[in-house]
Design a protein around this nucleic acid. Structure first.
Lengths: 149, 149
DNA sequence: GGCAATTATATTGTGTGCAATTCAATTTGT
DNA sequence: ACAAATTGAATTGCACACAATATAATTGCC
């Protein structure tokens, strides 16, 4: 087997590991978030809103790297679940502002143990945790330099 | 802000980094694979088949950690694209055997430069590459120990 | 041999992701 | 001021993911 062919082996593919790890992590969140009535992407949106309540769709999209094609239906589901409200901003009617409801705010308390549970499930010590974070950031920076948004 | 609340900050979430990196990598593959007529999950299936031509759906699913709900329609699309054929195995009619077509086999040559292109786009030196791989494997092993298949 | 449990795949339903398009509101250039 | 360009969301269309269910074939057990 020559060098080019060796690159085509699944077990050599770092990218597959990232892809598989992402799905495995999602699976670990599922039972925890099900108790809150959230999916993992919905939980990420709530994280952003818990940090700063009023956000436009665009601002959410920038932080989560998701576009309106993903966020619009997701936000509608969160709205019909009663966790937030969407309304056109008066100062610029193109923008839709997302506001937490009381139920959405209250959910934060119920979610407060999720990060620790997940951290434990990851099985990493602090130094590996930060090393993994560093390497992922490096990969994202490189990849996005080649294929910009 | 107390400790529990600090866990709920997006920028502290390693899991978000894995999720975002996975999508960023997918985006990097897209233009390369578009030239071959493949999506990234389809490319992964082809990688497995290039290594070992005859596989059942179950065997593919084990290697890629994907179930029949994902693989069945994906394999049908690869079949109608002319890259493979699906047929019930005579010895056990519950199993569906996947066979590459000549076009599917030929695609391997066209894909041979993909791994090197992607490796370059990742911007990692060899030692970071293997370190990232090690950490991801560790995470997957831990996570799957808690939420088994 | 026959029937219950198991196995392999397919189907259904829900929820992302994302490219491409559409539409309305705003900003810009003159 | 006003037409053209830009912007922010929503919509459409397609392709995953995955839980839950259905179906058909096989295996085990008596």
């Amino acid at each position: 087997m020559n060098l080019a062919e060796q690159g085509l082996l699944l077990e050599q593919q770092l990218c597959f590991d990232v892809y598989a790890a992402s799905r495995a992590i999602n699976k670990a969140y599922r039972p925890l978030l099900e108790a809150l009535g959230l999916t993992y992407p919905q939980y990420l949106v709530m994280l952003v809103l818990w940090q700063h309540e009023a956000q436009t769709v665009k601002q959410l999209g920038e932080q989560l790297q998701l576009d309106s094609g993903t966020l619009s239906p997701l936000l509608k589901r969160l709205e019909s679940a009663g966790f937030l409200q969407r309304q056109r901003r008066a100062s610029d009617e193109r923008e839709v502002e997302i506001q937490l409801t009381e139920a959405g705010r209250a959910l934060r308390q119920q979610a407060s143990n999720v990060p620790a549970s997940i951290f434990q499930a990851l099985g990493l010590n602090a130094s590996d945790y930060f090393e993994l974070k560093r390497l992922l950031h490096q990969v994202m920076a490189s990849v996005e330099a080649n294929s910009p948004d």
